[in-house]
Amino acid sequence: MDIDAYLDRLGVARPAAPDLATLRHLQERHLAAVPFENLSVHLGEHVVLAEDELFEKIVRRRRGGFCYELNGLFAALLRELGYEASLHAAQVFRPDGTLGPPLDHAAIVVTLDEPWLVDVGFGRFAEHPLRLSGVDTQLGEFLLLDAPHGDIDVLMDGKPQYRLERRPRPLADFAPMAWWQSTSPESHFTRSLTCSRPTSQGRVTLSGDKLIETVEGVRHEVVLPSPEAIRAAYRVYFGMALTKLPTPPGESPLTSGALSPTLP
């Protein structure tokens, strides 16, 4: 991995030591610089869970991705920087409180003197590591609770977000679910189009032709009038120079389910 190129993508200098302060800064910068987005699903692009492919997409092409891509590559960077970082599967809670399928989400656990949850691939979530060593632990707006089979439930603002496995997994374990998320008509990612990142005052999201900015808790939404305006928004707000725009949900070539999982 070209560590310097990745750090340049994040806008940070090479750190002196793999400590908690540096981890906090790296997570904060990753969230700000690399958007959570599912454009590949609507651009006819394969989602390939191999570190070299992810590096090309996220660092060289200055794109974003969803959880398997963002946390998969960020975990690799952390290991290159001297951290003990592993990927862990999670099941995402649905709005009705039931759990989604296994390996529905990928997050990172970094072990320093104690384990920390790091997640740059869940959209709106913690901007800094969450301590995992305690049980029934309140961390600001986040609450971590013991769950069955030794798993951990992560709540935000009192609402369950996902159930995290304790066991580590290789990136390849997530390839079949990444394929399902990218192709199934039942997947949230085939039924929606989003590109989002936090800002210093809130959050900015581009969903199709809708540009949504939240500033100090106040939501502002505008419909962009033309493809040129949409391209400009991707460039200005997310640093993306797209040669073509993603197809609206329901029309993407990947939603047919005709593609097979692409394994590393």
Rank of each mutant, 00 (worst) to 15 (best):
E80M: 07
G64N: 12
L23D: 13
F74Y: 08
H88Q: 08
G11C: 04
S40W: 01
A75W: 09
F125D: 02
D104M: 03
K57A: 07
R14F: 03
V41F: 08
A126I: 04
R24A: 00
V12Q: 13
A107T: 06
L73Q: 03
D136N: 06
S86A: 15
A126H: 11
L39Q: 12
S133D: 13
T22Q: 15
L54Y: 09
E45P: 01
L81I: 09
G65W: 07
E56I: 14
F66M: 02
L7V: 15
L31W: 10
Q91Y: 01
R94P: 13
V110M: 13
F36P: 05
F66W: 12
F74E: 12
T98Y: 02
V110S: 06
L23V: 06
E69R: 00
P18A: 07
S86R: 14
P15K: 12
V59R: 00
L20K: 10
E37A: 08
C67P: 03
E69P: 00
E84V: 10
L31Y: 03
R61D: 05
A17Q: 13
L54K: 05
R124N: 06
D119I: 01
G100V: 01
S133Y: 01
Q91A: 13
A13Y: 12
P102T: 10
F93I: 02
A21L: 05
V118M: 11
R9M: 09
D19P: 06
V59H: 01
R61N: 08
Y83G: 00
L99R: 03
Y6C: 13
G64H: 05
E114H: 01
G100H: 02
P95W: 00
H128Y: 04
Q138R: 07
D96I: 02
G64C: 10
L54E: 08
D96E: 10
D19I: 00
C67F: 01
E114G: 00
V12T: 11
V48H: 07
Q91G: 07
A33K: 12
A75I: 14
R29A: 03
L7K: 15
E127R: 15
E51W: 03
A90M: 03
F55H: 13
E51Q: 08
R61K: 12
V92G: 13
A17D: 14
V47C: 06
A89T: 08
L49W: 09
H42Q: 06
L7N: 14
R131S: 07
